[in-house]
Amino acid sequence: MSQVEKFVCIGCPIGCPLQLTHEGQEIVEIEGASCNRGAKYARQEFTDPRRGMSTTVWIDGARWKRLPVKVSAPIPKDRVLEAAGEIHKLRVEAPVKRGDVLLRDFLGEPGVEVIACRTMARE
């Protein structure tokens, strides 16, 4: 019994409507792409959709109240909100340097770090 999943390609502003036909976990066909990026995107979205993520955390002793941070590698799409919740529990203190690692193996994903996106001096 084959099923169809629909995606909108994000490769460029055309936004090709993609149709991915699958039987269970097996991909049967990908239609609708006007270039080869479409199929690749649909396959990734079907098998393991991931997203990069950035947000801010509380910082003490700096000019601003929030420090921008990001995850160093994409995380599973369905865990983005959970990730934000975890990161927001952080509170850091100035000074902070760009690239400082705040959390390692984030969400149990090996090698994924939460890192500071900018330097903030102590004021």
Binding site: W58, R66, K89, R91, V92, E93, V96, D100, V101
Partner: peptide
Amino acid sequence: PIDLEAARGEPPLHPDARPRIN
């Protein structure tokens, strides 16, 4: 406020937080 605890000045600390965390 973005989060109430922080606004009250008593945000919870993350147990795993490593560098420069107070």
